[in-house]
Every structure is written in structure tokens, then in C-alpha cells.
Design a protein around this nucleic acid. Structure first.
Lengths: 334, 334
DNA sequence: GCCGGTCGTCGAAGCGCTTCGACACTCTCA
DNA sequence: TGAGAGTGTCGAAGCGCTTCGACGACCGGC
């Protein structure tokens, strides 16, 4: 405890050492005797010293802040975003960094601004589109960046994501093993496909390819978020495809509606219809019945993105592309 | 465009003026002739100058960053949080500030750290609980702060929120005007009440008081998020209260389930049961049928919080308590 | 034609930190 | 015993900006 802001000079005086010695104790960049280190640390806590972030950034050219660029757009399922964001913040803290929040509606200007003003050392971008206008800027930026999601042309960038193609395929494989031979994929709202968002498209591709490989019959449909639209989609699907016995749902917001619609349409899960979801674990577990699912490992993706960006900051080489292997958890719905 | 980081000294040289003159052009704190100003601004854009945030913070003792402390806890409806967050970022940018994201799981340490290190100038806290452990810290902090939500003891703090008591009362009034005399409130999940979260409790109090005032019969129930639990709650409620003809739903996640449950239970909205929701506008509009609702003005609350915190930063006096008046939008459900 | 007031600009002193080179020691090993 | 190689610590030079006091130049009033 103390009156007004404590500086490193006061700590140095209190401990009877030079300012630079305090700095080296803090950074560990030079060896300091155990005795001196102890005295300095004691003084730091006695005075309640916290290094001034601005001064540190100015002198060291490192702000210890990373930018998190969020989209906040229609069609994204927000709770998932939030979990990413939370994971990024937590992971960043473990590297002694803080997180500056940028929303995409400031456009590329915001990115340029925080980078040019040295407000942040690095950037993590979420919800990257296939044709993302932020991507060209990132290529020119001296600050390192990591994308969560894949643009169409990821050369020269570092990207992390769940391997959605593998996830789609994994669901098909599971249904095939269970003996289903006519299955469907209910995906994201059509606006998401229109925008060319990578994860939706890649899941569909993985699904289609796996259906071929296993010699099944399969169809893929977009799927909106509201109950009424979901109900119609499911009803029409059942009419069109009487032999359908397996469903893959890749739309977190619609999962509950799909189950409700099946119930109203007299189909029991899993008896009349097997359902596999691609969604966060808690959503799958809370559903009735609990759903067999490929989980979206938001925490892991966020953590990995931060790890990569820190590696780049330290000048270590990182892979261009990191795809996290999907894991299928079998529950009551298949 | 230029090679590596441009400094104010280079701008000054390029424009043929002193460094301090450039600074005054940027800050407007001293009068500068139109001619000089023009030359300086030209040089700035010619060189692509961006002031270094760290240096600026160090010299001016202002980082131009505010902290946004998010809870990220169970029971909170995340999309609403996101809209607050987005509104705060947008509003902050209009005051030329950026937003640092803190999650509450770092506890009060994080708040203390960013304040003590002068990383942020001020704080906005979201989802404040009645008995919030962050509140005592805020009282001692020299940095100004604004709470979104109300703690039990708000003395000496600045708080903003929708006037939830008025919102609850407004719904009752509307139903009373429509001639309903036995009504119910379906609220937040019980865990939210147990935690003593202000907005849930205050809505309930407003509801109860208004029911009394209007001489109606009313009951209030917590309401979980999953379809099955909602279904049971609604079913039991209809059995217990055969005369019930009006429902207030203050639980964004459950709104859709309530409507589905009513449908399954053979009640038509609004014919057999009038429904008023307290939720964001888009949720009310997308429901089937579109719901009469009191909207949660996330954008307005976020904007107001930022305005208040900026006022405090400038040393202007602000009211301790800002309650935004609820607005009821009549739609098809009543 | 001189005095007091703006007005516009400049130079320099920090802000609190990191980091570089220097320097006094203490060990080792020839 | 003395050269060489570490250790542990210090002082000072910035990092890029804001802000204060100073100072000409120019104005109007007497």
C-alpha cells in the first residue's frame, strides 16, 4: 500500500539498489544474486509496485497486449464466439498479455490503427471468411497475426481451426457404422454459405466425400435458426426421403428445434432417427436426449491461437495451418 | 506510406515546425494558425504517422483505453452480453478510446492490475451482482468506473441499467389493459435468483407490486433454459391456474420454448394466452407469433455507460444511478 | 510612439521504463 | 601469480510523446 503511483525508482531506493537492478529482477534478463532479488521483491510488495504499462511499452517496444478482432455479424452463433473470446483472454493472460477488443465494424482501419500505434503486439482474428477483406492487410502488417478459420487463400498466414471436413466425415462414418445408409446434413443458415464462410462449407465437403466413400445416400441442406423454419425443413426432408434414418446437425442454434420438430413429427430419437450434432459439448449434453456429437473445441482453438501468436512474437517458426482433430462423443441419440 | 515507424519528430521536420507544434495540432490544446495546421496535417498523412500509444500514455498519463469487465458465467444469456460489449466498443471508439477485455475469472486481481499499471483509464463492469466482490475494490480505485447493473449497496458508485422494476410493471399494466386478471411471470433460471442477480429480482418485484396495484392475481416462477424443463413448468402452471390468461416471460433463452410448449399444450397465442416478453427486439420479432415485448436496450445501455465513464474521466459530475425507461412494443402476441 | 495583450511557435524538461556498456569483484587454470 | 572468464551491479542514454515557460510579432489604445 502507498499513496500515489509507485515507480521503479522508489522501489530501487527502498531496496538500496539501482533502478536497472530492479528491472533485471523483474525481467530475468540478467543474473541477479538471490539475496538482492529477495530484497527487491520484498520492496516491490511492500510498496505495492506495478510497472507502468506505457513506460514499459515505450522502452521495450512491446505493449504486452494482443488484439482480438471479433466479427459480431448476423448468422454467427454468438455463444460460441464468446467461448473463443474467453479462451483467448485466459490463454493470453498465461503469457502475461492482455486483450484489446476490436469489432470488425471499424473495418480494417481499426486493425491498422492499433498496429501502427503500437497499442498491440499481435493480432488474433476470429470468424475469418473465405474472401476476407482483412486478409490482405494482415499480409503487410509487421505485427504477427493468427486467424481462427481459413480464408480461401491462406498462403503466408497462420490459421487455426477445427478440421471441419474431418468432423463432417467423422459423423458420416459413425452413422455408417451404425448401419444407416440414407442420411442428411442440416447445416448453417443459407446466408452463412452464401458468405462463403469456411467452416460451413468444409463440413459439407467432408460430409459429401464421406458419403461417397461409404457408398451411402446423402443430402445436405442449409438450416435456419427459428423453430418454424426448422420445422418446415425437417418436415419436407422426411417427406422427400422416407428412407432417411440418420441426421447430422451442424447448427448449434437449431439443434433444439430439430429435436422438437422430430418429436412433433412423431419420430423418436434414436429409434426412428439417429442424430449426430457438431456443436459445443454442453449443448449436446443438455439436449433431450443427450446427443452424440463432435464437439467444437472453442477453448482449445482459442488457446492454440494464442500459443501460435506468442510463438510468432518470439520469432519461432509456426505451421501455416493447424487443424484440430475432431473427437466424437457417443451419447443417447445414435 | 513509409518504411518503419514514423515519429512525431519526422513529421515536425517534414513540415518544418517544432515537435511541440505537431503535438498541439493533434491535441488542439493551443491555437495554431490555419496555415501551419494544414502543413502539419499534410505531413502526417504523407508520412502515414500514427502517434505511439505507449509514449502518449507515458507523457500524458492517459492511455485512452477503458477496461470492459465481462462475467462469462453460467445462467447469463450470452448474446445479450455480446451486444452490450459491442455497444461499449463502438461507443468508446467515438470518444477515441479502445477497449481492453477482462474476464471476471481473473477476479479482482485483473482489475487491480490494469488500473495500477495505468493500462486503462477507466472501467466498465457488466452483469453486476447484488453482492459483488468487485464493488469494494472499485470504491478505492482512483480510476473512474461505471457498473452495468446494480449491486445491493450502490452508494458512491455509478450504475446504469434498464429500469427492470418498471419493465415488469409495464408488462402487467399492458396485460391489465387488455383485460387479463390472472397472470404469471416466467423469469430467469433459479440459479440466477439464488445468486441474487439484480435484474431478475427487480423485474419480479416490479411485477408483484404492479399486480397488487391493479388488483390482479399473479404468480412468479423461475424458468430454466431447456425445452423439457420449460415444457414441464408451463404444463404445471396451466394445471395449477386454469384461469391464467396472460404470461410475462423474462428469459430470452426460454422464450421460444415457452411458445412451443404452449402450442403443444393446445393453447393459441394470443387467443388463449397473451404473452409479453422482456427481451431484445430481434428475438421478439423473430418469434412465432412476433411478441409484444419490452426491449432490453443493450446498445443504449452500453452507450450510456461509456458516456458516463467519459464524463467522470473529464471530471464532470454524473448521477449515481441511471435507469433507462422501458419501452413496450405491441406485436401479435397480446 | 510606447505599453500591455493576445497569438503562434519553439525548445527543453520530463513521464517511467529497458538496455547497453562499464566496472569491480571473484574464480579458475596455466 | 597473473591473465582470462565469468558474475553481479550500476549509471546513463534513450524510447516518443506532452506540456510548460519563454519569446518574438503583431495588435489596439492612449
Amino acid at each position: 500500500m502507498s499513496g500515489r503511483t509507485v515507480t521503479i525508482a522508489q522501489v530501487a531506493k527502498h531496496a538500496g539498489v539501482a533502478v536497472s537492478t530492479v528491472s533485471y529482477v523483474l525481467s530475468g534478463k540478467r543474473t541477479i544474486s538471490a539475496d538482492t532479488r529477495r530484497r527487491v521483491l520484498d520492496s516491490i510488495s511492500a510498496l505495492g509496485y506495478h510497472p507502468n504499462a506505457g513506460a514499459r511499452a515505450l522502452a521495450s517496444k512491446r505493449s504486452n497486449v494482443i488484439a482480438l478482432v471479433l466479427p459480431l455479424r448476423a448468422g454467427m452463433h454468438v455463444p460460441v464466439l464468446m467461448r473463443f473470446a474467453s479462451a483467448v483472454v485466459t490463454a493470453a493472460r498465461r503469457f502475461d498479455h492482455d486483450v484489446l477488443l476490436l469489432t470488425a465494424d471499424e473495418g480494417t482501419d481499426g486493425i491498422h490503427r492499433v498496429a501502427a500505434s503500437a497499442l498491440v503486439d499481435a493480432l488474433v482474428l476470429m470468424d475469418v471468411e473465405l474472401d476476407d477483406r482483412r486478409v490482405p492487410l494482415l499480409r503487410e502488417l509487421p505485427e504477427p497475426s493468427v486467424l481462427i478459420g481459413f480464408p480461401a487463400e491462406p498462403a503466408g498466414l497462420t490459421c487455426v481451426d477445427l478440421d471441419f471436413a474431418a468432423a463432417g466425415a467423422r459423423c458420416v462414418q459413425h452413422l455408417a457404422e451404425r448401419g444407416h445408409d440414407e442420411i442428411a446434413l442440416l447445416g448453417a443458415p443459407s446466408v452463412v454459405y452464401d458468405r462463403g464462410t469456411g467452416f460451413a462449407t468444409r463440413t459439407r465437403e467432408g460430409f459429401v466425400a464421406a458419403v461417397d466413400d461409404h457408398g451411402l445416400k446423402g443430402v445436405t441442406l442449409p438450416c435456419e435458426d427459428t423453430f418454424d423454419e426448422v420445422y418446415e425443413t425437417v418436415r419436407d426432408l422426411l417427406l422427400d426421403r422416407p428412407g432417411l434414418s440418420g441426421l447430422v446437425v451442424h447448427n448449434e442454434a437449431a439443434v433444439g428445434h430439430v429435436l422438437a420438430a422430430l418429436r412433433q413429427l412423431g419420430r423418436r430419437v434414436p429409434h426412428d432417427m439417429a442424430v449426430v450434432a457438431i456443436c459445443p459439448d454442453d449443448v449436446a449434453e443438455r439436449a433431450g436426449p443427450p446427443l452424440t456429437s463432435v464437439l467444437i473445441p472453442a477453448e482449445e482453438v482459442g488457446r492454440e491461437a494464442v500459443r501460435l501468436v506468442m510463438d510468432k512474437l518470439e520469432g519461432r517458426a509456426v505451421p501455416d495451418s493447424t487443424l484440430l482433430t475432431p473427437l466424437l462423443a457417443v451419447r443417447a441419440s445414435t
